[in-house]
Design a protein around this nucleic acid. Structure first.
Lengths: 231, 231
DNA sequence: TGATACATGTCGATG
DNA sequence: CATCGACGTGTATCA
């Protein structure tokens, strides 16, 4: 990643035309060749940018441009479209490069992970007397989202999905089959919990004796506020 | 603007919860206090961010966090909501601040404005003998995108949208009603032009005697390519 | 201030 | 691959 603070003007032509007058801005060149132009305010979105795949070529300015003070010309071309970003640099105030390596995943914890934590914390929404055994209960074929016990102390395996599809029911069925072979656990009941359950999935689940539960995300978050979740 | 390259993990809690595992990333602190976390790929959008208004507080790590290698803790709180961004910094590889001044702002034209210009320049795509009267023809209730005349010299009011929705038809209907009360203009025909027209909008338009025209953006741009527009 | 349309939207799931 | 819908949507205009 290359960081350049420069006095520059920027032109973009693609689906629209845009021009940025001369000012000091941050030019961010990423490892994949993409370029972002940021000002010192208005977060989130760059003033101008070029998405990968694209190529950055640094050109010598034409004499007439040089006469206007341009010392370097960046031409960023999109690989697949005719989109073109041109940065006319008048002065470079900072220039540094950094090796960041590959990001382990821009994986934001999705709703599913959050639902799992919320349900684990409030397992009683499944019924009085329900108690959490543990999250991510490991089996030979992978972790079950939540293992709990019901009011009679019987084991309950819970599969959580954001959208309850047939795949999820199949997955839970495999876990149940395996766990019910373990005399220390059996009999194990199944709960398929999701924000939304497709009719086909519901039918299949009920046919296999699996209970379906709709999770209300907002309600589960309820009392819980962001600060208490982080600290 | 402060640029920090740091080995860090990031947690966000607000409308959703998100966690970024330990990795080297760019932390961008803008003059308005907003913070952006960028990785070295996937442009445009930060991995995590906090929009202004917000406040950044740098904390000493708790002993247990320090034991895990955290040397600095950034807490970014949104001013109006409970949203919270926490950056746990393990190592700072680069840290520099730059005074960029106020950005003069972006000048750009969106697709709709561009479509309007293109259609005005090529009004004949509506039919032989069509002639442009003017763009942004002012009426008492606002400007009509394009006023033209057809091959018989009759007035035609044209409403341009990127996506043709019912609202657009209603808007054009109001213009037509008003303009048809003007004896110098009446009768005025209506054309609803868009890249895409929703079935409901098309039905309503046809019911009101308004002609629907699909605009082919690429075709209108035709010879005109981005390179020729920049150089 | 609230409602609405536009965005170089981006991004993921679905068919 | 096109289409559809959500997004921590952001952003501007307009009533």
């Amino acid at each position: 990643m290359r960081l350049v603070i420069a006095l520059c003007s920027v032109d973009y032509a693609g689906r629209l035309s845009a021009h940025l007058p001369l000012a000091t801005r941050l030019l961010l060149v990423k490892a994949d060749g993409s370029v972002l132009v940021h000002s010192d305010s208005l977060s989130y979105k760059p003033l101008n940018w070029m998405s990968p795949p694209c190529t950055l070529t640094v050109l010598e300015p034409e004499p007439e441009q040089a006469a206007l003070g341009v010392i370097e010309l960046w031409k960023v071309s999109a690989a697949k479209t005719a989109d073109l970003l041109v940065v006319s640099i008048h002065e470079i105030l900072h220039d540094s490069s950094h090796n960041l390596g590959v990001d382990p995943g821009l994986q934001k914890d999705g709703v599913e992970a959050h639902l799992q934590k919320l349900l684990a914390d409030q397992i009683q929404v499944l019924g009085d007397g329900y108690r959490l055994v543990r999250r991510e209960y490991m089996t030979a074929i992978g972790p079950v989202d939540i293992l709990a016990t019901d009011e009679a102390g019987k084991s309950v395996a819970i599969e959580i999905k954001r959208r309850g599809d047939i795949d999820g029911v199949e997955q839970l069925t495999r876990y149940l089959e395996l766990m019910n072979r373990d005399p220390l656990l059996a009999p194990v009941a199944g709960v398929f919990a999701a924000q939304e359950i497709k009719p086909q999935a519901r039918t299949l689940a009920q046919d296999r004796g699996i209970r379906c539960v709709i999770l209300d995300y907002d309600e589960l978050r309820g009392l819980d506020d962001p600060h208490s979740r982080l600290f």
